[in-house]
Design a protein around this nucleic acid. Sequence first.
RNA 1: GCCCUUGUAGCUCAAUUGGAUAGAGCAUCGGCCUUCGAAGCCGACGGUUGGAGGUUCAAGUCCUCCCAAGGGCACCA
Length: 586
Amino acid sequence: MKEQLRSLIATAVDRLVADGTLPPDTRVEIQVERARDKSHGDYAVNTAMVLAKQARRKPRELAERLVAAMPQDAGVAGVTIAGPGFINIDITFEAAYGAVRDALEQGPRYGRSNQGADERINIEFVSANPTGPLHVGHGRGAAFGGTLASLLTTAGYDVNREYYVNDAGRQMDILATSVWLRHLELQGEAIRFPDNAYRGDYVRDIAQRLRNSAQDRFFHPAKVVLASLPLDGSEGGDKEDYIDALVSRTKDLLGPEAYAAVVSLALETVLEDIRDDLAAFGVTYDQWFSERSLTESGAVDDALQRLHAAGHLYEADGATWFRSSAFGDEKDRVVRRENGAVTYFASDIAYHLNKFERGHTACIDVWGADHHGYVARVHAALKAFDRPPEQLDVRLVQFAILYRGSERMPMSTRSGQFVTLRELREEVGADAARFFYVLRKPEQHLDFDLQLAKSQSNDNPVYYIQYAHARICSVLVQLREKGLTYDPVNGDRHLTLLTESHETELVSAIGRYPELIEIAAAAREPHQVAHYLRELASHVHTYYNAHQFLVDERNLRDARLNLVLAARQVIRNGLHLLGVSAPEAM
RNA sequence: GCCCUUGUAGCUCAAUUGGAUAGAGCAUCGGCCUUCGAAGCCGACGGUUGGAGGUUCAAGUCCUCCCAAGGGCACCA
């Protein structure tokens, strides 16, 4: 309908250009919007105001001429000019009821479009270091990324969901060392646990698995392990130096093969946990991309080689630097350290290059807000490869700050005190958690009060929407119990009986869904879907309270049932998109 | 010090991406269950959109400055 109206206005503009009212070089993007206020009709067009200046005419006068030049259309019931020069268009009942028909006919496909048909989008999200369970901050990234991916898919984009596994580097070493120390403890060795090691219970669990599989093969006495190490942080030394020394000791004592076995056991265990956790949260991936694979395949060296060939690298202080400041970054960045090892950033350059070389036309990265300083340098790298940086859209998600009542909860993976996503799911349920997360724009700071979420879970908006769905299901049960008939075909023939204001508003809300999907997908804003659903549910509840659906008059009953079943279908589709269930009874 | 994000009703957040009279939920107050589920509905109260300028037909939205909060400024990942 929107497109139809757009073309009507476009024709009117063309005609005014032809008769000289508008200058021959008139260029305008015609915006057709849903009117906010129903007193402004169904759709509003601002073209007259936009063109007023170049036409050198008053907006309202221009609006009148545009309206006069508009072709007749069967779907248009009336056109008025209002305010500073808005053209407000009412569509006919017949045109509006088309939405009900579409929703019922298309079912789960209602709302889909081919808006993104030409795009292949890679969306990378969560990508938490596999050094422990996901916490509630990751949960927000998971809910946002997962929902955005669904939203884009619904709008017809070809989407690849990806998790970047940081399986190389120091954090993995610290995890492996932590596991090994716990493993020695299980064998009766008394070891003061390092300040900077991972202390969560899951480390003990992995150690137990290691003990089960390796028996005593990885044993070394504590005094050998701890011999002549520097002082730890709490002993007056430096905790970073201490843990690094301990990592080296672990590698030396175990040897490369055994060490690799510990690393991979730790990695696999944690990744499996993350995968299960996300799956239970309704978030799945198409691809788990290993950082280590980039170094092993030579992709990192290759990327650096290409930067070198293009003259973007230089040597200084024994390290290799990328001249990122030439591409908008605030300073240059090291890509190869003095000790010869490549940096995380170097891997990331290769990784993003790889994403585009796999044929993606756009990439979305969902990062925690604490990584924002990193955006400029990745964009710089893309520019260095002559990639338009806008092709990489970095979405920063603010951390959720957890409260229990008024008490702020500390969050640190290292200390093991964090609240995990799993715990959150168990407390408030996956449905409520996902909805709660995605209801807010990601760049908003989020105060998440667990006590509130738990104690008031009945007031959570997700129940409001699910209830609307369940209520409609319940009407069908009543229909059978009362022995009444329902004929959808007859209902379709009598949709014009639906003239109550509650009904026309619900019809209009249903018709807005496909438009909403396109708008939300283009803006990459999943929260719009959540807000829309709450509004739709509100229309359903209001209608339910104002009118009886199961009336004696057959034609009206059939028509009303068609309407509410169409609404139910939209609620289902929307909730499914959000990863939230649509129960038939609550 | 520099950079990023944010600042909207008592609280938590929206606002069709520059549109018309800034809207919801919670909280408070008052109504609606003998009728398809009251996890609901109807109504009331609540605002100088952090502050000051500017841009234009139109600013919560864009620009400049100031204030405040959170975060970031590694040869860590």
